[in-house]
Each structure stands twice: as C-alpha cells, then as structure tokens.
C-alpha cells in the first residue's frame, strides 16, 4: 500500500545497533537496519491525525520516540519497552509542528516548536511544560539540537527569516520542575 503523505524517517543507534524509525499517520514502526529484524510494536495509543513531527533520541537516560500530529497532539513512547510514556491532546493546529529531543543535565527533554513562534520544553511524560519562549515572529519551520562548546543548544529557524540558538540550561526548583533559561541569539 502506498503511503504518500506524512511519512518520516529518523535513525539512531540503540545498544550499538542502528535502528530506523518510520512514522506515518499510524503509530511508529522500528526496525534494526543491520539485519532488518523488527522491534516490538509500540502501544497503540490514541487515534491521531496526519503526522506533523517525529523526533527520537537514545543518548539520554530515556530512549524515546515522540510524534506530533497536525492538531498539535503529541505522544511519546519508551523505545526500550515500547510503552507509551505520555499523551498530550491538542486541538490547536500546528501548535507542536516541529519536535526535537535532547538530554539536558542528565534528563531526557522534549522540545516542541509551534507555528505561532513558541518554543516549549516538555517532560517525557508530556504532562507539563515550562513557560513557552517567544522564539520567532511567525511559524517556526524547523528545530534541531546540538552541543556548542559542550552546552546543549537548540537551533530554530522561523518563517520570519531568523535563525535562533537557545542555550538549554535547566533552572530546577525544589519540586524538580525545570525551565529552559531563554538565553538566546537570533540572527
């Protein structure tokens, strides 16, 4: 069956083996790229609309896959157990259109970017997010993460023509709730 819309592919290394993760409007699927064998299917989770974003990461303590749909709903799975970590329903189209995952100070962290220019940090269970950062005037079209001088940094690109780099330092309170310190450069 041909699946012409909303297909994404990301690759990572899990336990020294290369893994391909593909997502369509259905749940994601994962297979080992060295022998073609399949990883177990994930928990089904709730019904989703057309796929918007896919991100995955196995470098942090939680090996994670997170998807978003065109309504902004997000679902996260543990890639090792294939259990659903969290579900965040939304009815705001494009509210989490772009996704990235990174490890911040030992915590696996989800970053989402919206078509209204907001950048949000989420816990892996998607139950709470820090106060959003107004990153761009208009839609954020892409987000990625990298280390700059050893500091985790999120890079965003917006339809306003700007590129932003955001230092991902956590400010953690006694209750372990954390926020990104929005130190940034836009150019």
């Amino acid at each position: 069956m041909r699946t012409p819309y909303g297909v994404r592919l990301r690759c990572l290394t899990l336990g020294n083996r290369p893994v391909g993760i593909s997502a369509t409007p259905g749940p994601f699927a994962a297979l080992y790229l060295d022998d073609g064998s399949h990883l177990p299917p994930p928990d089904q989770g709730p019904q989703r609309a057309a796929l918007a974003g896919l991100a995955c990461d196995a470098s942090g303590p939680t090996k994670i896959v997170v998807l978003s749909d065109q309504w902004g709903s997000m679902i996260a799975w543990d890639l090792q157990t294939m259990r659903m970590l969290g579900h965040r329903p939304s009815k705001k189209p494009g509210s989490n259109a772009c996704l990235a995952v990174t490890a911040l100070e030992g915590r696996t962290t989800i970053l989402s970017a919206s078509r209204k220019g907001k950048l949000r940090r989420w816990e892996t269970n998607l139950t709470a997010h820090a106060a959003p950062i107004a990153a761009h005037n208009g839609p954020i079209t892409a987000i990625n993460t990298l280390d700059i001088d050893g500091r985790p940094t999120a890079v965003t690109v917006g339809a306003d023509g700007l590129t932003g780099s955001w230092t991902c330092t956590l400010a953690c309170a006694a209750d372990q709730s954390c926020a990104i310190l929005p130190w940034s450069t836009r150019y």
Partner: peptide, 16 residues
C-alpha cells in the same frame, strides 16, 4: 519520502 544518515556495520549509509 524521507531520508537520514546512519552508520551500519561501520559504514555510513543513507537510509531512505
């Protein structure tokens, strides 16, 4: 429809 680069058996490959 989409592609990514990954290392398989020590070689860089494009997965599509």
């Amino acid at each position: 429809l989409d592609a990514d680069i990954v290392t398989v058996a020590g070689r860089q490959v494009i997965a599509v």
